[in-house]
C-alpha cells in the first residue's frame, strides 16, 4: 500500500472514531441535564400518572445505553427521531435549516477565503509598510468587535439609513437567487469581517515564515519578481497551515453562526437550535449537536488530508 494511502485511511478512521466519541458526549451531556422532557411538555400541573404514561411513550424508561444505541443507529440511517414539541420529523425540518446555514456559509466563504488570502499576500508583499499595517489594523479591529454589534451597526447604517439591503434576512424557497443574495448580504458581510482577520494573519505568518527559507533567496537570485516568488515558491510551501486555518474558519461559519442568525432572523441551524434549547427539546438538541460535530470534524479532516497531500515528501517517497 502506498504510504500516503495508509496515512489517509488512518486519518479518516480517526475522524470517524472522534465522531463516535462526540456523539457519546452529546448524548451523555443531554442526559445529565436536570429536569425531564415529559415534565417540561406537560408543565407544572401534570399528574404523576400522565407523566409516567408520557415517559413510557417517549421511551424514557429504557436504560441509557439502549437509548443511545437506538439513537445512534437511527441517526446513521438518517432517522433523527421526532421533535418532542411539535411531533415533526427532525431530519426533515433540520434538512431545510441546514441547507440555509450552508447557503449562508457558502457565500461567506466564497468571499472571505479568497479575500483573506489575497490580503495576506498583499501584506507580505508590502511587509511592514503602510498597506500591511492598514490591512492588519482593519482586520484586527473587525475581529475585536463582537459580531452582534457589527451586525446591528451595519443594520442601522446600511438598511435603516441607506436602505440598500433589508435588515431581516429571512429567506424562503420561493425567492429567486438574486433575492436570496440580497437578503443575506448583511449577515454575509458580518461573517466575512469576523473570519477575515484570522485567516489573513495566518496566511501572512505562514508565507513570511517560508520567505526566510534559502530557496526564496535562490529565487531572488534567479531574478524572479517579488510577486512570482510569493506565488511560485512561497505559497505552495505555505498551503498546509493556510488550509488548516481556513477549515477552522469554515467550521465556524457553520457551527458558530448562532448569534448572527439570531440577529438577522435567518432561518438556519443556529436559530433552530436556540429555539429548541429553550423548549428543552432533547432530540433536536442532540441532532443539532451531532451535525455540528460532524461538520467540525469533517472540515478538520479535510484540512489534514490537504496537508498530507501538499507535502511532497509524503506524496513522492524516496
Amino acid at each position: 500500500m502506498h504510504p500516503i494511502l495508509k496515512l489517509l485511511v488512518q486519518r479518516i478512521a480517526l475522524s470517524l472514531l472522534l465522531l463516535l466519541a462526540a456523539s457519546a458526549m452529546i448524548f451523555i451531556g443531554t442526559q445529565i441535564l436536570p429536569g425531564d422532557v415529559a415534565q417540561s411538555i406537560l408543565g407544572q400541573s401534570a399528574t404523576p400518572e400522565s407523566l409516567a404514561n408520557l415517559r413510557a411513550e417517549l421511551g424514557l424508561n429504557e436504560p441509557p445505553l439502549t437509548r443511545y444505541f437506538d439513537w445512534l443507529f437511527g441517526a446513521l440511517q438518517g432517522d433523527l427521531g421526532t421533535a418532542l414539541t411539535n411531533g415533526r420529523d427532525i431530519a426533515e425540518s433540520l434538512g431545510a435549516r441546514l441547507k440555509n446555514t450552508l447557503f449562508l456559509a457558502f457565500w461567506a466563504a466564497l468571499i472571505s477565503v479568497p479575500l483573506a488570502i489575497f490580503l495576506g499576500l498583499l501584506a507580505v508583499r508590502y511587509q511592514n509598510r503602510w498597506p500591511d499595517k492598514f490591512i492588519s489594523a482593519v482586520t484586527l479591529t473587525s475581529i475585536s468587535i463582537p459580531e452582534f454589534l457589527i451586525g446591528y451597526v451595519l443594520m442601522y447604517f446600511i438598511s435603516v439609513k441607506l436602505g440598500w439591503f433589508t435588515s431581516v434576512s429571512t429567506i424562503y424557497d420561493s425567492m429567486s437567487l438574486g433575492e436570496k443574495l440580497s437578503a443575506i448580504a448583511l449577515p454575509v458581510t458580518v461573517l466575512t469581517l469576523v473570519v477575515l482577520a484570522h485567516m489573513m494573519r495566518m496566511t501572512r505568518a505562514a508565507i513570511l515564515n517560508v520567505m526566510q527559507s534559502a530557496y526564496i533567496e535562490t529565487a531572488e537570485l534567479k531574478g524572479l519578481s517579488m510577486f512570482n516568488i510569493i506565488r511560485k515558491h512561497a505559497f505552495p510551501n505555505a498551503i498546509a497551515p493556510i488550509v488548516n486555518v481556513v477549515m477552522l474558519n469554515l467550521a465556524y461559519l457553520v457551527v458558530g453562526v448562532v448569534v448572527v442568525e439570531v440577529v438577522f432572523v435567518y432561518p438556519g441551524m443556529g436559530q433552530y437550535l436556540v429555539d429548541h434549547v429553550a423548549k428543552r427539546d432533547v432530540p433536536v438538541v442532540q441532532a443539532c449537536g451531532l451535525i455540528f460535530a460532524a461538520v467540525y470534524i469533517g472540515l478538520n479532516m479535510i484540512a489534514d488530508i490537504v496537508s498530507i497531500l501538499a507535502n511532497p515528501r509524503l506524496r513522492h517517497p524516496k
Binding site: S213, A214, Y215, T218, L221, K222, G223, H233, P236
Partner: peptide
C-alpha cells in the same frame, strides 16, 4: 535591470543545495 542580470548573466550556487531547492517543485 538587476533581475535581468541575476538569473541570466550572473548565477549563484549556495552551500546547502538541500535548503536552496524548493521542496515543493
Amino acid at each position: 535591470d538587476l533581475r535581468r542580470l541575476r538569473g541570466a548573466d550572473v548565477t549563484y550556487v549556495s552551500q546547502s543545495a538541500a535548503a536552496s531547492f524548493n521542496p515543493a517543485k
